[in-house]
Amino acid sequence: MHIVVCMKQVPDSAQIRVHPVTNTIMRQGVPTIINPYDLFALEEALRLRDRLGGEVTVLTMGPPMAEESLRKALTFGADRAVLLTDRAFAGSDTLATSFALAAALNKISQEFGEPPIVFTGKQTIDGDTAQVGPGIAKRLGLNQLTYVARIADLDPAAGTITVERRAEGGLQVLQTRLPVLITMLEGVNEIRRGSLDDAYRAARAQVVRWSAADAGITELARCGLKGSPTIVKKVFAPQGRAEKVRQVPTADRSADELAIDVIAAIFRTQPPLEDDLLRFAAGQ
């Protein structure tokens, strides 16, 4: 079975800093990583391949340096990596992104075989939109299974799949027909290490590189900034509160003295809170 995993290379967001004067992102030295949510999708795909045979192709759209993330995915054990990279994709919003990825998936189907399952992570840590997976599913007519906690059953011969999907207040057990798009929930598995041979193979592997034209995209107006219905009007740092923070003086106060000061300050700020707490304490 051929499985495709869509991934994204993202900045390690914990380390992003904003220029204090210009309010622009300082990219200096910000390391990039595979979007952590995508690793759950990749591991799930690798497990299915190990069980049922076949191949795992990883696909990403991004700048040339995104190849690093793909190579890392090969180190984990993926069989093939495809990088969709073209200046025409710059400035894509989620709609334009799903357009480009859907085209690349069609091309992958032609070149390497049609995948009954396409995986994505549940969302990225930089965009946090969770829209690209559903967008791809809709464009390619794949049955959409989001927030999947477990693949309970998969019968490639019969073309059916049963999954447990995280919903509000419980798990939905859904059965549908292949082909499907699955977005994996976080924490449902743990990415493997990859053997030394996998690492060696990955280091020397050729990553397939496609431009928009290579992926068969002719309508460039549907890509990148042009193909994005949303536009970013402004990017800004938030304002502080109008009313300044009241600092509790700490000079020459022991931790215990300071604690008493803090509690007094809290109750001065919000007197009813003291009654609430006393009621709680009385109820104990």
């Binding site: 990859g194 053997s195 030394l196 996998d198 690492a199």
Partner: peptide, 9 residues
């Protein structure tokens, strides 16, 4: 020997 599976070179 390395810490990866099948890890000798």
């Amino acid at each position: 020997r390395t810490d990866r599976d099948g890890g000798t070179a």
